[in-house]
Amino acid sequence: MLFFAFIGFIEDLGQEITGPAIISKSLTGFILVKLTHQFFFTWSPHFKGMIIFIFTLLDEVIYMLIVISFFNINFEPFVLSKEIFIKALINIPIGLFISWGRP
């Protein structure tokens, strides 16, 4: 949990606001850990890729919701969706590479 919070903190350092990435990373990490402990999933590369894609989307959505809610920052929905989607796609190969050989 602390590891995810730390990753979020590092991401927040690059932004001006401290907190949103910590929350999003902690929540996503928590759900991910819970999911990986379920033995009924077969962790094939395709499934892993899908999970990485979905969790990146989840992480970004949480982050954006916090920022939009608390700081009244407006975003163009289409541009924002496109950015998040592309980010999630890019994360698939990176995530697969990092988790290579792990269950």
């Binding site: 949990m1 919070a5 927040d12 350092l13 690059g14 932004q15 001006e16 606001i17 401290t18 907190g19 949103p20 910590i22 929350i23 902690s26 929540l27 916090i66 608390f70 700081f71």
Partner: peptide, 23 residues
């Protein structure tokens, strides 16, 4: 963690940022 962060976020939304932006 979430509670602390929410407090932090609420504080930052009304005042200045806690930490300067790191490049």
């Amino acid at each position: 963690i979430i509670t602390c962060c929410i407090f932090l976020i609420i504080y930052q939304s009304k005042n200045d940022r806690i930490l300067p932006k790191f490049y």
